[in-house]
Amino acid sequence: MTAQITVTEGGIPHNTLMIYGLVGSIIGIYLTYLNTVTGTQLFSFFGGLGAIAALIWGSSTIKRLCSYGIGTGVPSAGMLAFGSGVIAMLLATKFGIASPIVALVLGFVIGAILGYIANNILAMKIPVMIQSIAELAAVGALVMIGFSAMVTGSFTFSPLSVVQVSALGGTVNSFGASLIGGGLLAAIFMLGSIALQHGFNACLGPSEKQDRTLMLTAEVGFLSMIMVAIFSFAFLGFFALIISIVVSVAGWYYTYAQYIALSKRDAAAWLDSKPIVEAEGH
Results as ranks from 00 to 15, higher is better:
residue 3 A to V: 03
residue 3 A to D: 06
residue 5 I to G: 04
residue 10 G to I: 05
residue 11 G to M: 04
residue 13 P to G: 15
residue 16 T to W: 10
residue 17 L to Y: 03
residue 17 L to K: 15
residue 19 I to G: 02
residue 27 I to A: 09
residue 28 G to I: 00
residue 31 L to K: 14
residue 32 T to G: 12
residue 33 Y to G: 08
residue 33 Y to Q: 08
residue 33 Y to I: 04
residue 39 G to P: 06
residue 41 Q to I: 08
residue 41 Q to K: 15
residue 45 F to Y: 11
residue 45 F to A: 15
residue 46 F to A: 13
residue 48 G to Q: 05
residue 51 A to S: 14
residue 55 L to S: 03
residue 56 I to Y: 07
residue 57 W to I: 00
residue 62 I to P: 01
residue 63 K to S: 13
residue 67 S to A: 09
residue 70 I to R: 00
residue 71 G to C: 04
residue 75 P to G: 10
residue 76 S to T: 14
residue 77 A to W: 01
residue 88 A to P: 06
residue 88 A to W: 04
residue 93 T to M: 14
residue 95 F to A: 15
residue 96 G to E: 08
residue 98 A to I: 01
residue 99 S to R: 12
residue 101 I to P: 02
residue 111 G to M: 06
residue 111 G to V: 00
residue 112 A to M: 15
residue 112 A to I: 01
residue 113 I to H: 08
residue 116 Y to G: 14
residue 120 N to T: 10
residue 121 I to P: 00
residue 124 M to D: 04
residue 124 M to V: 02
residue 125 K to S: 12
residue 126 I to S: 10
residue 126 I to M: 12
residue 128 V to K: 09
residue 129 M to Q: 14
residue 130 I to R: 01
residue 137 A to V: 06
residue 138 A to C: 09
residue 150 M to K: 09
residue 150 M to V: 06
residue 153 G to D: 05
residue 157 F to L: 12
residue 157 F to W: 15
residue 158 S to V: 10
residue 161 S to F: 08
residue 163 V to W: 07
residue 164 Q to R: 13
residue 164 Q to W: 14
residue 173 N to M: 04
residue 177 A to R: 15
residue 178 S to V: 05
residue 182 G to E: 01
residue 182 G to H: 10
residue 186 A to W: 14
residue 190 M to C: 09
residue 193 S to H: 12
residue 194 I to D: 07
residue 194 I to Q: 05
residue 199 G to D: 02
residue 201 N to M: 05
residue 204 L to N: 06
residue 208 E to H: 04
residue 216 L to Y: 11
residue 219 E to P: 00
residue 221 G to Y: 06
residue 221 G to H: 10
residue 222 F to S: 09
residue 223 L to R: 09
residue 224 S to P: 03
residue 228 V to R: 13
residue 230 I to C: 11
residue 231 F to Y: 14
residue 231 F to W: 11
residue 233 F to L: 13
residue 235 F to W: 00
residue 237 G to Q: 11
residue 239 F to T: 14
residue 241 L to C: 07
residue 244 S to H: 08
residue 245 I to W: 02
residue 247 V to T: 09
residue 247 V to R: 15
residue 249 V to Q: 01
residue 257 A to W: 02
residue 258 Q to A: 03
residue 259 Y to M: 01
residue 264 K to C: 03
residue 265 R to V: 00
residue 265 R to G: 02
residue 266 D to G: 05
residue 271 L to R: 11
residue 272 D to R: 12
residue 272 D to A: 15
residue 277 V to G: 09
